[in-house]
Design a binder for these strands. Structure first.
Lengths: 93, 93
DNA sequence: TGACATTATATCATATATGATATATAGAAT
DNA sequence: ATTCTATATATCATATATGATATAATGTCA
């Protein structure tokens, strides 16, 4: 399995995708998390255990129906042995 | 006023700074937001109006005693005409 | 120093995130 | 088709974020 699979999951529902793209940072996060999970070849349940959460909550997260706090994002990144980077980037060129 | 001033504000309380550095993403955010405000040469009150919030809440935000949701971060970035970027960065080299 | 501006702290009601569990639905394997 | 696994959806109690207001403390300037 590869990114193709992740893309398939993201594309499952065109409506959700449209909304996700409008809410771009959320999309970024979801995309990254799904990629990570698939990269590791693990189920949502296993991923949930990894970050100290539950499978239904991972599903909700991946679906975009989720609004995590900064602390939650940090916890997730720590559990995934990743460094969380948050930036407010200037739109000017 | 320049970054020196922002630094002074961040350094006001060594204990807070120590904790902030430990909670690094939060520190990043605060640093960026304070920089932005000082760059614009506006008070917390004016900044608050800019992002649709109140001065006491900005103070709380700048002090680190704040745990914003993703939606809140997005709203802030939108109001500041910035693009919010969130990444889980691999720690490997 | 005093007046005013700015920032920090406290408090509170309401909204919503977190964490947990049950169950429905979809997918995979045989 | 059946069984099992994986994912999606629903629900709920509790914790906590949001948004708002009042006030205290600190800073600035004449």
């Amino acid at each position: 399995m590869e990114w193709k699979e992740a893309k398939k999951i993201i594309n499952r529902d065109p409506e959700v995708l449209r909304e996700l793209k409008n809410l771009e940072p959320e999309y970024q996060i979801i995309k990254q998390l799904i990629s990570l999970r698939i990269e590791k070849k693990i189920t949502q349940k296993e991923f949930a255990v990894l970050i100290g959460d539950s499978q239904p909550n991972i599903s909700r997260l991946e679906s975009g129906n989720y609004n995590p706090t900064l602390a939650k994002l940090k916890k997730m990144s720590d559990c995934l042995d990743r460094k969380l980077e948050i930036r407010f980037i200037s739109k000017t060129r």
